[in-house]
Design a protein around this nucleic acid. Structure first.
Lengths: 128, 128
DNA sequence: TTCTTTCATAGATGCTTATCTATGTTGTAC
DNA sequence: GTACAACATAGATAAGCATCTATGAAAGAA
């Protein structure tokens, strides 16, 4: 997980992908202790995970990915989730600011799609 | 991600690991649409992710894993995180209730360690 | 132009949660 | 037995957040 001394290149690599400061490997104690994550890195990671850790946003992601061409506009998401349009827009904004979905305006509609690369980063980030 | 029709056995498998109801694959539309995740499943997944999506808990996990034998007692975690003992206990309880860490009382001390299997589940759950 | 539709933003509200102090519980030593 | 140490629990408080209604901005149609 987060910080491992022996096979810990994964951690540094993952942090780099998320543009976080790499763990200081030199801080590893000689008796096998590894370097724990610092507060700024933990806060950045928490912001990212908080964006996903909401049932409505999880459903939004699922609905977008389940839609044709893996994209959906706000009007397509309001009805199945039974929430107001501003609430849906709010959640989509949170996901977009975390880099998890992408926004593209085509005429009157705004289409949202998943950022696959970002998801791969998160998946690898949580690997043990 | 969450629900894919074609190679979607992964999702059902992951959901099963987390003891969530499998996605109803028969609901997949014939034109390529896949079945989006339902509200109960999304809420269960959100509860799990919320347990991780906190900077203090991320640091706790990191510190536990970085400790000798990958275990730590509360008294070892209070000082480096600069938080009160009840606050640390509170966060450890949240992590334990989510199945992310395990608790073992040995004498006066209580030792916490990571549940590696649980972490593997989460990692595979977020795979694209 | 004016009207309609789609989406975003502003502000308010109620619920959740992270933190603290104070206290209780359990185990060890004397 | 008492005293002390480690940890959990209870209750209070303040900050955060998910949701709503109301409104604004932008694009297309008539």
């Amino acid at each position: 997980m987060f910080a491992k001394c022996s096979p810990q290149l994964d951690w540094v690599f993952n942090m780099t992908l998320l543009t976080l400061t790499p763990v200081d490997v030199s801080a590893c104690a000689p008796d096998g202790l590894s370097a724990p994550i610092g507060r700024p890195e933990a806060e950045q990671l928490a912001i990212l995970l908080k964006a996903i850790a909401d049932p409505t946003r999880i459903q939004l992601i699922s609905y977008i990915n389940a839609s044709k061409n893996a994209e959906a506009c706000v009007c397509n998401l309001t009805q199945p989730l039974a929430l107001s349009q501003p609430t849906i827009s709010h959640h989509l904004k949170v996901l977009a600011e975390a880099g998890l979905i992408e926004r593209e305006k085509r005429g009157t509609w705004v289409w949202y799609s998943l950022n696959q690369d970002r998801w791969k980063q998160i998946s690898s980030l949580l690997e043990v």
